[in-house]
Design a binder for these strands. Structure first.
Length: 571
DNA sequence: AACCAAGTAAGCGTGATGGA
DNA sequence: TCCATCACGCTTACTTGGTT
């Protein structure tokens, strides 16, 4: 007699266990069929193995442990059990009552948001009502503990979603007829917004209000220069868009228009030049012809605007940043950079700075440009020098550029702190004479270390360079060049360019002028060059001019210089 | 001289990119 | 895929130019 053995199949002489899984409607994404090789050709072994497997599978199916339900499956059950009825009921109800009066609408909207908030709270506290529903729903379906939890969570999320649907319908954003495929798809995709998100989306946040918050928040960490930069850019923006504008209404295209039709056409000095005082933005633009803001400045302004919108995006005040990609391409970069002085211009400068030529000659008016040319230092770095900042290191007289031990001194960056050898030309011109004179004064007067240039006074926020800056600017314009790219800072370019020409290594130049070195190799393994090597390199400077002839001076004898060096403090 | 705004130089962090 | 490098954006400090 034949005893049928379920789920046993044979193929090519081998036996397999094959079983279709129960289709209770919750296995959409799971395999519908299991096939296992029994690894035998022996029918007897195969039959007993097959019976064992069948028993095992049945028990697994009974407890539901065979697999957990998929998320979509849980959602589908929920839609069928709860959502459909709810949505259709509500649509019917609305239809019965007809149009809603404004007050009812307002109450209804608030109610829907409250429901959302309630379930959101449940979501965070174990889903008590969700669990009840899940247990009831899954009573006759094989399931596991995690299925219950998952379903409870989905149930609560769905309640939030349904409240949102209700909200939308009361607000007139959804067509309140019946349950639709769209709603089904929305629930299936798990696309639920929180009450907070909806509330937030409904709130109109004005440009003015957000700019105020942004500046208040950022000003705490920003320096003054950044504060004014951002404020100026955003003030102009608000003048164009109006402070009452909804931030979300500002789109990329609007900002492009703003950049191209407003910022690019503004005259420089709009807030300072009395010509433009009190003139509304659009009026000014209509009137103004001639010079406009540099493209670089336009970019700087747009960068402020971008910063603001990035902040808005991070705080979810806008859904996307409309201020991306607003930077102008600065192709003519070289135009905006400062240029070194030409050989002729250098000559002109120092001829006119001679004691016997310049009206109101002061020693600093000559020494500071000389030092700039032969040390590459910045204007303020030279102007703020104290007499103690000049000393010998390993016998080599050097400048120290630092802000240490001096409240009023400042350096641009940490890497600006450095020690630069005094170039022999300066020594031969008698620079140490001047320094030693100033040092004598120290002993006779106050305890405070005197400045190298006592006539340059400190200005809060401007350092010591302010007065000199002005006088040099006038001098430069009058005697040297009208070229706005050739200014005091040009000496620094002369210095670096010349060293480059002489084949001095970039890392050496960087160290002498106080730039940080980008290359990792140097940053990690490089040590500072020793004073002799620095001097050796700085002596390679060759401006192809005879400074002694230009200034009408004889170089000091080496022995005299050596004697002066002896008198300097040592490090 | 004081002040303000425009403009330039520089560092740092980060995302994109491209090769091993 | 990982890692190093590059390019770019953001922020700051400094310089310059102009007005009152």
């Amino acid at each position: 007699m034949n005893i049928p053995v379920n789920h046993l199949v044979s193929r090519n002489g081998k036996y397999y266990f094959r079983c279709r899984l129960p289709q209770n409607g919750y296995s959409a994404l799971s395999p519908a069929e299991i096939k296992i090789s029994l690894r035998t050709s022996d029918q007897k072994i195969a039959i007993s193995a097959c019976k064992l497997l069948t028993d095992r599978l049945n028990s697994l199916v009974k407890t539901g442990a065979v697999r957990t339900m998929t998320l979509n499956e849980i959602r589908r059950i929920l839609i069928e059990e709860y959502a459909t009825g709810y949505i259709e009921d509500y649509a019917r109800q609305l239809a019965d009552y007809g149009p809603i009066c404004p007050k009812t609408r307002k109450q209804g909207l608030a109610g829907a948001l409250n429901i959302m908030a309630h379930y959101e709270q449940e979501l965070n506290s174990g889903n008590p009502s969700g669990k009840q529903c899940a247990e009831a729903t899954l009573r006759d379906v094989p399931h596991t503990g995690s299925d219950i939890n998952l379903m409870a969570q989905e149930w609560t999320l769905m309640q939030i979603f349904l409240a949102r649907v209700q909200y939308d319908r009361i607000a007139g954003k959804r067509f309140p007829t019946e349950y639709s495929q769209t709603l089904y798809d929305e629930i299936m995709s798990g696309n639920y917004r929180s009450a907070a998100e909806i509330r937030e989306a409904e709130t109109v946040l004005t440009l003015g209000e957000l700019v105020k918050r942004y500046l208040a928040e950022k000003n705490a960490s920003w320096g003054i220069s950044m504060q004014s930069l951002a404020k100026a850019a955003l003030d102009t923006l608000m003048e164009y868009f109006d402070a009452e504008t909804d931030v979300k209404a500002v789109k990329h295209q609007n900002l492009l228009d703003y950049r191209d039709n407003v910022v690019l056409k503004l005259p420089p000095g709009r807030n300072t030049n009395p010509k433009y005082q009190g003139l509304p933005l659009m009026e000014l633009l209509a009137k103004h012809k001639g010079k406009t803001l540099a493209r670089k400045t336009v970019n700087l302004q747009m960068a402020q605007i971008r910063g603001f919108f990035i902040w808005c995006f991070k705080h979810e005040y806008v859904h996307r940043n409309p201020a991306e990609d607003l930077q102008l391409d600065l192709r003519h970069k070289a135009n905006t950079e400062r240029l070194p002085y030409s050989q002729k211009e250098l000559q002109k400068i120092f001829e006119n700075l001679r004691e016997d030529r310049l009206r109101n000659w002061r020693s600093y008016k000559l020494w500071i440009p000389l030092i700039a040319l032969y040390s590459g230092a910045r204007m303020n770095e030279i102007c703020q020098l104290q007499v103690d900042n000049i000393f010998t290191v390993g016998g080599i007289p050097s400048f120290e550029i630092t802000d240490e031990g001096d409240e009023t001194a400042s350096v641009k960056t940490e890497s600006s702190k450095r020690i630069v050898p005094v170039h022999p030309v300066l020594l031969q011109l008698g620079f140490l004479n001047y320094v030693l004179e100033r040092r004598k004064e120290k002993r006779s007067r106050t305890k405070e270390v005197p400045r190298l240039w006592p006539m340059l006074k400190y200005k809060e926020g401007h350092g010591y360079a302010h007065d000199f800056s002005k006088s040099y600017r006038n001098f430069n314009k009058r005697y040297v060049t009208q070229d706005s790219k050739k200014v005091f800072h040009s000496f620094r370019h002369n210095f670096t360019d010349n060293l480059k020409q002489q084949g001095v290594q970039e890392s050496m130049i960087a160290e002498l002028v106080g730039h940080s070195i980008k290359s990792m190799t140097f940053a990690r393994y490089g040590k500072e060059y020793n004073p002799e090597i620095r001097l050796e390199n700085i002596m390679k400077l060759d401006y192809k001019i005879d400074m002694f002839e230009i200034l009408g001076k004889m170089p000091l004898e080496d022995e005299i210089i050596a004697g002066q060096v002896e008198q300097l403090p040592k490090r």
